[in-house]
Design a protein around this nucleic acid. Structure first.
Lengths: 216, 216, 216, 216
DNA sequence: GATGAATGAGCCTTCATTCAT
DNA sequence: GATGAATGAAGGCTCATTCAT
């Protein structure tokens, strides 16, 4: 049904103008993403992106002021997808939950794929760096909050700095894609989840949580 | 005696030729390092490096076949400095030792500084990637070995996968410079060391080690 | 009609796109030819060719991958023009025919002009050398064939090696432009034709042919 | 005997200074000749020539103001060697004499080898061109004179322009090295000599000369 | 809006030439 | 005299960006 329903004749899609434009924009972004990931940001030229999206070079510049803006749009568009859903660790087996979370997060990142180009740019593009840092901070605060909550309930180690724990967890999280890229295979999320959990919970707490005695 | 005896003031260094050449090479490498770190590898031109080292463009090419080779030399020169000395965790307070190690490692990396450019290049330079991956693997194996040893002595958690622990530690280690770059200040090595140690040792073991009862 | 109808005066050519592109290519080739001839192949830069054709440097590279390719195109385009039409010496006054042929050939070469750059390149560009050698061989075989035919009819010297004769003729032919370049004036084609004819025909045969007694 | 007679100790030749200098100059010229011929004039760098002659780059410029001057010296030095000895065609079998001359000339040219680089330079170096043109003219006049002499004795064709004959002969002469370079083998000097002779002498004259009846 | 030819600044690299040692 | 490191102008080529159609 709707506008794409086969009433098309030949190669002239009868889409509303705005829709057509939107499609082109999308195509360019997708091409940009693909090429950035395949060959790196610097090595990808605007012309290539346009060609890959089957539009003329000039068209690129109608939709984006330059290569960088396309990247920014990619990020804006999809940064929220990186945001891990608030983990509900305290409601059940935290190791299992975390392993699931890791798998999901890793998959999301891979779908997005941009983590491969960011390192290339972050150090030299403050604005971009800020966007990313903010996203990271958001995750960090979210995680600290969760840890804090668990701390309130006396579920966590009492002698560890929650901020450092949170940061360490994020460090591990962010290194995951690299690990997988280097080894060429999926990481063993369960083992890693177990390690991460140990940073947070004493073993006996985890057992309690796993046995379901102590859910929120 | 004569004109070369060091009494000269001003711009006539009068060093032995080979020395002069070596100095120039060093100056170029230092300039390369500085500029790579400041403005990124791609954005740095051979001309700039030469200018920063106060030599002509052509001189750059006398000492290096190109920018990449300069980077490789930087790495070769200093990769061993990254190599953390084998930690002797089991001989004393592991938290203290690890904190010291973190501080030292972080400082080394910062002196080297290249960790900022590597991410930019690794995905697109297989040879370079291999060099780095090898170095990382070396650290990883070293760490696994140490953990294994501790494990033999029943010092470690018995339910954690040592390989994953090792990898997580390295992940944290490698994220340190980024953390410091983003926050603009030194990390709190002691708190982080504590978190890392928790991945390895049960708290009571750490206490034992700290009290010196159970050294190797 | 409207703005494209040719009534425009000034700088708006308004040709169909393809035509314009073709013209630009032509202009570049012509500029290349001119500059190669004037100042030599090596001494001519792509930038100069572009400037002479009133286009930007980059435009040169849209139409040609490099200087050499432009030269190759020049040759391909015009090599057939060098090919002398098969002479019909045996049908009439051979001296007159040959003189005409020489004049024509010389004029063609001069129009083309590339004979001035070829010597510079042939020894160091095997591919180019092959192209040229093939063209020369073609002429050689054509000439041998004609001589052979004349030989069949007992028109030629009986004691000369036709292959050597053919080669000598071509040598003379190819030296013509140089002779003219050095003296700065046209060669005396009739006198030279007479000399060449003497390499082929005994004088009495020529007389016969000239008197028309013995045409094919 | 003399200065080179074995009193040398180690690697310090006890040659008079001037001699040493002269040797270096010679070595540079020989290296230049070799490299010009192998890789072309333009593609040969001063540094290469120096390296090939086992001297430092700077030394090159002590003996020659630049690459071109080295070439000029090469020519000056050896141009006379190109000069064919005045042929004494009229004293014996002209075909035999000419064949010998061709062989000798060809060998000389090949020893010199510079005929390979001249075409690259002549069109764009008027001074050089003049040197060469003069040499050629000298040969031309020499040849015309000989022909004239033969003409006086009624040995030559009476209806051919001696100037054109002379020029044609030189054309053939100068194309010889190219022919040999292209075919990769020696030319058949006897056959070619026969053709050339036919441009000059009627067959019966040649027979006379060969039979020795009519020497000068 | 779309096109893609055109632009030209700027990068990489080479090499003739100089000059301090 | 000899050396060879240093110089820097200049050529080849790319690519982000513009603009006439």
């Amino acid at each position: 049904m709707s506008k794409d329903d086969g009433h098309l004749i030949g190669k002239f899609p009868a889409l509303p103008k705005q829709e057509r434009a939107h499609q082109k924009r999308e195509a360019l972004m997708e091409s940009g993403r693909f090429l950035f990931i395949s060959k790196g940001y610097e090595s990808t030229t605007a012309k290539e992106i346009a060609a890959h999206a089957n539009v003329a070079t000039g068209t690129f510049y109608r939709y984006f002021s330059d290569k960088r803006q396309l990247l920014m749009s990619l990020l804006e568009d999809q940064l929220e997808k990186i945001m891990p859903p608030e983990p509900t660790w305290v409601h059940g087996d935290p190791e299992y939950l975390l392993a699931t979370l890791l798998a999901k997060h890793s998959e999301d990142l891979n779908k997005l794929g941009l983590h491969r180009v960011l390192p290339e740019l972050l150090p030299h593009d403050p604005e971009l760096a800020e966007v990313i840092t903010n996203a990271r901070l958001k995750i960090h605060f979210m995680m600290v909050e969760v840890l804090e909550q668990a701390h309130q309930e006396s579920l966590t180690w009492t002698d560890l700095d929650l901020d450092s724990v949170s940061w360490a967890i994020i460090a591990v999280l962010e290194k995951l894609p690299q690990k997988e890229a280097e080894s060429g295979s999926k990481a063993d999320y369960e083992k890693i989840a177990k390690v991460i959990c140990r940073m947070i919970f004493p073993p006996e707490i985890i057992e309690q949580l796993q046995s379901g005695e102590k859910t929120l």
